[in-house]
Design a binder for these strands. Sequence first.
DNA 1: GAAAAAACAGTCAAGACTGAATGTTTCTCG
DNA 2: CGAGAAACATTCAGTCTTGACTGTTTTTTC
Lengths: 204, 204
Amino acid sequence: MVTAVPARSRQEERSQQTRQRLMTATIECLAELGWSGTTTTVVAERAGVSRGAQLHHYRTRAELVLAAVEHLAEVRREEVLREAAALPAGENRTAAVLDMLARLYTGPLFQAALELWVAARTDEELRAAVVPLEAKVGRESHRLTIELLGADESRPGVREAIQATLDLMRGLGLANTLTDDSARRSRLLAEWARTLDRTLREAR
Amino acid sequence: MVTAVPARSRQEERSQQTRQRLMTATIECLAELGWSGTTTTVVAERAGVSRGAQLHHYRTRAELVLAAVEHLAEVRREEVLREAAALPAGENRTAAVLDMLARLYTGPLFQAALELWVAARTDEELRAAVVPLEAKVGRESHRLTIELLGADESRPGVREAIQATLDLMRGLGLANTLTDDSARRSRLLAEWARTLDRTLREAR
DNA sequence: GAAAAAACAGTCAAGACTGAATGTTTCTCG
DNA sequence: CGAGAAACATTCAGTCTTGACTGTTTTTTC
């Protein structure tokens, strides 16, 4: 009699888990130790995966990191959608949206992504993989932000205001990497919420 | 008879030149090759300085980079002041100021600084040197921007608007590292100039 | 149930980077 | 002019990282 277990399930599953562990370990390393601290050895150790197993799945460091790039994009996407679903409606919706964005842009995922961006700037191979992915993520973020704010992009200036908001977030995230910037950031975002609201609602 | 040349001048001068060459080479390497591409060997080669001379002046890589950090701050400062002096007065002063800032935040000096920031995040020693320096540079930039825009910081919201402008620049600079972003940036800054002007001038 | 394939483990050699050690030239001062 | 110091040059050893290689276990398929 034929077993009901799908073909290759055991091994595939095991293999999948190993890869998963390697991915999360890679991203953790990027966030905690930075780009040059993320060596294949350290990643393997942290993932609890032998060096051999690691090389079996990702033959070179470049391969490992490229896979991590895509995995990171996926994880970021999920995190965004999860947070977005929990947003309150009503009066200070704008402030809440900005707050959520700020949290995303100051968290560990952003820091890992930052390491990748900066490394990709001077690494042709990595750059070729990061650029299109980041473009996609950027478009999605833009779309989602518009949706969350209920903005009307056909109005003049609205598109730019949204873009400015996201660029501002990137800047705030960058500023936050060296020192804890939360107090200043709160005041700044409170003001920006006012300005943004006015830009979105006004007729021009 | 005693020579008119001040004591130790020849050697001091030579020494100074060597250090200068090492500094500019270090910053060039950071901008072109990134943090991990900036090895002591490469810097020495590019500076046209022997490995021995390099080690004579900066005994460790950390020492070399820390010196480069301070040198970078000085060069950035000079560049800012030079550009600021050439700004036109009159109607679209705000747009001109934003344009100048954008150029600074997308140039090679910003990219070198970016490498340092990101590296400093996970390098305790480097961080200890970068943080206070960056705080100083940040304050100066803020002061200068206020001055250039003729803004009145005592008005509510003005301080935050200036900070947001600078944070936005950081974000735009970051976005520009991977792809040429100038078209989008121009449109965005044109709108930002309007918004900023309104915030600065309005009574609230 | 045996062969084949996949996953995994452990070791090793080549290359790169850093910093130390030592030798050589140039300059200053008495 | 000669001694001593500073600047500079060259070589070398130690460490780290990567990726290749070989062996072992588990799983699937015929």
